[in-house]
Amino acid sequence: MNVIKTPKTQTNSGKRELLFTFQTIIVTGLLAFTAIAFFCYNDLSVVKGIKVIFAPFLSVVPLLFILSILRDLRKGFIEGNYTKNEILKFGLITIGITAAFTGITLLLSKIDALEILLAGIIAILSTVFFLRSKIKDILGMSIVTGIAEGIIVYMIFLF
């Protein structure tokens, strides 16, 4: 409940940033949840143990490199309200990403080796952290929301 206790972020953009952070935490939790659920139910086997150790590096290293050299891509959260067109546009983007991520989770469930699943999940996680730190905007928020909803929709209806 970090959102509530910090008194210094009273502005709307500050509140938005906290909501965004919260959303990324939820997505991280959901991804961990997905990994555990798939690991328990899909009879994953470890084919080559060494690959498990190196799976995270595939996406974490590029992420850190990109984060270190890139400037912020967006201007940050706005203070006022969004217009109707913007809301419509980003709502549609969210729905699109939701559909896409239902499909991506379906693909992840087809994987039968732990190391590949791990690499996939960490790649998504890196994407989320990239959005979190560089695309601080409604665009980032709608993508992150879409990822979360996509995973949940898969879990409810297809798992």
Partner: peptide
């Protein structure tokens, strides 16, 4: 798992709503 997922379902959406309709 399905039940937990269906309970969690509204939360990201609510955050998104709150994000847009902050005022």
């Amino acid at each position: 798992i399905k039940i937990i997922a269906s309970i969690v379902f509204p939360i990201p959406m609510l955050f998104f709503m709150r994000f847009i309709v902050i005022e």
